[in-house]
Computed example of a mutant assay.
Amino acid sequence: MTNDTAAVQPKSTNLFAILSIIFVWFGALFGLIFGYIALSQIKRTGEGGRGIALAAVIIGWVAVASAVIAFIAIFAIAFSQS
């Protein structure tokens, strides 16, 4: 009797996906860059880690938007008191 079911190898997680989720907490732009690289590589190679890379991209854009809003608010407050 033969076993016709092939052993399923788990997909390896893309290295850039892992790096993106780490670096997004230290610098949103680095997380965005690594996240987009990871998404591109994952689409091409079929590796795992798409959710991780996508989370890093979303967190990165939220951080960038928050920084822009904070900068505009500080700028507006600083020049409204003159």
Rank of each mutant, 00 (worst) to 15 (best):
L15A: 09
L29M: 12
F34P: 00
V68Y: 09
E47K: 04
A53C: 06
G27P: 06
Q9D: 08
G48T: 09
K11I: 01
M1C: 11
V57F: 00
K43D: 15
I77T: 07
F75E: 12
A38V: 12
I37P: 03
V8L: 13
W25I: 09
S66Q: 08
L32S: 00
A78I: 13
F71L: 12
A67Q: 13
I37E: 01
Q41S: 10
K11S: 04
L15C: 06
I77N: 06
T2I: 10
I33C: 05
V8I: 14
A65Q: 12
G27H: 10
L15M: 08
I18L: 08
G27E: 15
V8H: 07
I58D: 02
I21N: 05
S80A: 04
A70K: 07
I33S: 03
I74C: 13
L15S: 09
A67P: 07
N3S: 09
Y36T: 07
F71C: 11
Y36M: 11
A55C: 05
V64D: 12
S12L: 13
A63C: 06
A67N: 12
I22M: 01
V62I: 07
Q41V: 08
A55E: 01
I72H: 11
W25S: 13
N14A: 01
I58L: 03
G60M: 01
R50I: 07
A6L: 06
I37D: 00
W25D: 13
S20W: 09
S82F: 10
N14M: 03
